[in-house]
C-alpha cells in the first residue's frame, strides 16, 4: 500500500551530537566538582583541589605544596560534601525521571508525591525516638520504610479517589505529604528539644553532615538502583505510551509500576536520611534533560543523574556562599528554584 505524507517533512535536528553532549556533561560535572570544593569561607585553588585528590588516591605522586589545614578542609570537609551533593542530585534526578514515566505524569517528583516526607518521618522516628539500635544503618532503613509507607499511601489514595490523571495524582501526593509531615512534626514536638533543633535544621535539607565513612551507603544504593532502572529503560519507554499498550508489549504493568515506586522510595529514603528534604530536583532535572537528549530512557536516565549531580553541586555552592559564613539549608535553594520552575511548567502546559 502507499500512504503519501500529506505534509512536507522538515528534518529534525538529529542527535549526532550525543557523544559530544555526553562528554560535555562529564566535563561540566568535573568542573563543577572542582569549583564546589574550592569555593567557600576559605578559598582553595583548583590546582590544590586536584593535587589533594591525586595525593590521596596515589600517595607520593605529587609533592604537597599546601598546608595541612587546607588539606583537611578539602579532603575531610568539602570533598565528602560535594560527593554527597552529587549522589543526592543524581538519585533524585533518577527517581523523578522514572516516576514520570510510570505515572505518565510530567509533574511526578519524590517531593511532590510525598515520598520525601515519608522518608523524613522515618528518619525522625529513628533519630529522636527509637535510637540507633541498628547502628549507622538505622536512619537510612527507617527513612526507606517511611518513604515506602508514604508511597503506599499515595498509591492507595490515588486509587480510591480514582486520581490517575496528572493533576489529581499530584494532589493526592500533596495531601499525603501534609499528613505525613504533620505526623513528622508531632514526632519532633514530642522529642528531646535540644535534639529537635538539630533535626529541624537537617530536615530543611543540608549536606553539611557528609562524612567519608558514610558515603558508601548512598553510593551502593545509587549504583544498584540506577543500574536496575537503566536495565528497564525499554519498559519505561513503553510505559509513557499507556498502560494498555505497554501491557500488549508484554510488560506486567501493575507490578512494574510498583517496583519502580519501591526503588524510587529506596533511593529517596536513603538520600533523605543523609541530606534531609531537598525538593523539586526530581521534577526539574528530567525536563531539562529531555530538551537536551530527547525522550529515550536509555539516555534520559544517565543524563538525569549527571544533570541532577551538577545542579545540586551548584545549589550547595549557593547555599554555602550566599550568606557566608552561614550555611543556608540547601532545601531553601532548590525549593525556590523548583517552585519557579513548577510555575513555568504549569504555564507551558496549557
Amino acid at each position: 500500500m502507499t500512504v503519501e505524507s500529506t505534509t512536507p517533512v522538515p528534518k529534525r535536528r538529529t542527535l549526532k551530537a550525543l557523544p559530544v553532549l555526553a562528554a560535555g556533561g562529564i566535563v561540566v560535572l568535573l568542573a563543577s566538582l572542582s569549583m564546589a570544593v574550592s569555593v567557600g569561607a576559605v578559598s582553595v585553588s583548583a590546582g590544590t583541589v586536584w593535587g589533594v585528590l591525586l595525593n590521596k588516591l596515589m600517595p607520593g605522586m605529587i609533592e604537597a605544596t599546601w598546608s595541612q589545614g587546607r588539606e583537611a578542609i578539602v579532603w575531610d570537609i568539602r570533598f565528602p560534601r560535594a560527593l554527597l551533593a552529587m549522589m543526592v542530585g543524581a538519585g533524585l534526578g533518577l527517581v523523578g525521571a522514572s516516576l514520570q514515566a510510570v505515572t505518565r505524569n510530567p509533574l511526578a517528583d519524590p517531593h511532590l508525591l510525598g515520598i520525601s516526607s515519608g522518608g523524613a518521618f522515618g528518619a525522625i522516628l529513628a533519630l529522636l525516638h527509637t535510637g540507633l539500635f541498628l547502628g549507622l544503618l538505622t536512619v537510612p532503613l527507617f527513612a526507606f520504610f517511611g518513604a515506602l509507607m508514604a508511597t503506599g499511601l499515595v498509591l492507595g489514595v490515588s486509587r480510591i479517589a480514582d486520581a490517575t490523571s496528572a493533576d489529581r495524582l499530584v494532589l493526592a501526593g500533596v495531601a499525603v505529604s501534609f499528613i505525613v509531615m504533620a505526623a513528622a512534626n508531632l514526632l519532633i514536638f514530642l522529642g528531646d528539644p535540644r535534639a529537635s533543633h538539630t533535626v529541624v535544621f537537617w530536615m530543611l535539607g543540608g549536606l553539611g553532615l557528609a562524612r567519608w565513612d558514610q558515603l558508601i551507603y548512598p553510593l551502593v544504593i545509587l549504583l544498584a538502583s540506577g543500574g536496575w532502572l537503566l536495565s528497564r529503560a525499554g519498559a519505561l519507554n513503553a510505559m509513557t505510551v499507556g498502560d494498555e499498550t505497554a501491557s500488549t508489549l508484554g510488560i506486567p504493568v501493575a507490578r512494574f509500576r510498583l517496583l519502580v515506586f519501591a526503588v524510587g522510595a529506596l533511593i529517596t529514603g536513603v538520600m533523605v536520611a543523609f541530606s534531609g528534604i531537598i525538593g523539586f530536583v526530581g521534577l526539574m532535572v528530567p525536563h531539562i534533560v529531555r530538551m537536551l537528549v530527547g525522550g529515550d530512557y536509555r539516555r534520559v536516565l544517565p543524563a538525569s543523574a549527571v544533570v541532577g549531580a551538577i545542579f545540586l553541586l551548584w545549589a550547595d555552592v549557593v547555599a554555602r556562599t550566599a550568606m557566608a559564613p552561614e550555611d543556608i539549608p540547601i532545601g531553601v535553594i532548590t525549593g525556590l528554584i523548583g517552585g519557579l520552575f513548577f510555575i513555568w511548567l504549569l504555564g507551558r502546559r496549557r
Binding site: 514520570q100 514515566a101 510530567p106 519507554n237 505510551v241 499498550t245
Partner: peptide, 21 residues
Amino acid sequence: LQEQPTDFALTVREIVALGRT
C-alpha cells in the same frame, strides 16, 4: 488502541521501535 501517549519527547522511530520490546 485509543490511548494517546503523553508527550515525553520520544521520536517517531523510538515509538515504533517499542514494538520490538
